[in-house]
Amino acid sequence: MSDLMQMLVAKYNYWIYITLMMIGLYAMIAKNNLVKKIVGMSIFQTAIILFYVSTGAKKGATIPIIEHGHGAETHVVHAVDYINPLPHVLMLTAIVVAVATLGVALALAIRVYNRYNTLEEDEILAQIREK
């Protein structure tokens, strides 16, 4: 039992991202409303962004900006003192991608709404079957 608790506490960032991801996945699969599905998709993507960002963190480290950067050739930089900036930079790109995806998804949802006058998936499918 204590082992399990230790695992949960020590790796809590992973557990949070997995929980978020599953919430997103659940919404995408189980929700009937198209916009709710899109919201689920957004949560899903955000979970992965959280995962990446959390992997850059280190205990007792600070933001990766080197003080006295100019004219301080004698200054030694310890990588341990700074969190890893690369995952953060990658996630800037991923956020842009997520925003673009959300935009395209909402635009498609508008097209669907204009055609069927509803965003509920079962009603749309019923209309398709009627034809």
């Binding site: 995408m28 998709m41 899903f44 993507q45 992965i48 995962f51 992997t55 995806t101 498609l108 669907v112």
Partner: peptide
């Protein structure tokens, strides 16, 4: 549009999984 929206859900999950693996 509806078919493309369904593709978008699945395609996004696929790309996110790839991203997660790369992570």
């Amino acid at each position: 549009p509806l078919a493309a929206l369904n593709y978008l859900y699945m395609g996004t999950i696929g790309a996110c999984f790839y991203l997660l693996g790369v992570g």
